[in-house]
Amino acid sequence: MAEGAEAETQQKDEPKRHTYPLIRSSDMNDELKTECMELCVTACEKFSSNNENAARMIKETMDKKFGATWQVVVGEGMGYD
């Protein structure tokens, strides 16, 4: 019984993390949006401990496929308004 309470306490102390892509708004077509989401998930899984490398991979891939106009931000504590 003490083990269950200890595990529950540890879960409450850990920060909440999303395990899926979240898009609030976008003006991309559905095909491009799907490809971007898949690329972002792949990069974040591959470089789970290094946000800079994940952002670099996403930007380089998007620049090659769709032109050099992409800006990528990967990190913790980002806000959206």
Rank of each mutant, 00 (worst) to 15 (best):
G75E: 01
A54V: 08
Y20L: 08
A55H: 03
Y20N: 08
C44Y: 01
L22R: 13
G79A: 06
T34K: 05
C36V: 12
Q10D: 06
D81V: 10
E45M: 10
M1F: 05
N50I: 11
E45T: 10
E60S: 04
F47C: 10
L22D: 12
T19C: 08
M37F: 10
L32I: 14
T69H: 15
E60L: 04
G75V: 00
I58E: 03
M1W: 02
I23R: 02
E35V: 12
S49K: 12
T42C: 11
A7W: 08
T19N: 00
A2I: 04
N29H: 08
V41Y: 00
M37L: 14
P15F: 12
M1L: 04
S48E: 02
D27R: 03
R24Q: 09
D27A: 05
T61R: 01
N51V: 14
K16V: 13
E60T: 04
E6C: 07
E14Q: 03
W70D: 02
G67Q: 07
M57Y: 09
A55Y: 06
C44Q: 05
V73P: 04
E52M: 12
K65L: 03
Q10E: 06
L39D: 03
V72A: 03
Y80D: 07
E76P: 04
E31P: 05
N29L: 08
Q11F: 14
V41N: 05
E35T: 13
E52D: 11
C36P: 00
G77T: 04
P15A: 04
D81A: 13
T9H: 09
R17V: 12
N50K: 08
E52Y: 15
T34V: 13
D63W: 13
S49Q: 15
M28E: 06
A7E: 05
D13P: 07
E45P: 08
E60A: 02
G67K: 02
S48M: 08
E31V: 11
K65C: 08
E76M: 09
C40Q: 03
A55D: 06
K65F: 12
S26N: 02
E76A: 08
S49N: 11
S48V: 15
T34Q: 08
E31G: 11
K16C: 15
D63I: 09
D13H: 11
K12F: 13
E52A: 15
D81F: 01
V41L: 07
R24H: 10
D81P: 06
A7S: 09
C36F: 14
M78F: 10
E60H: 11
Q10N: 04
E3P: 04
E38G: 14
C36W: 13
M62Y: 11
L39V: 09
R24A: 10
N51T: 15
K16Q: 12
R17W: 13
M1R: 00
V41D: 07
Y80M: 09
V41W: 00
H18V: 15
N50P: 02
G4P: 09
A5M: 05
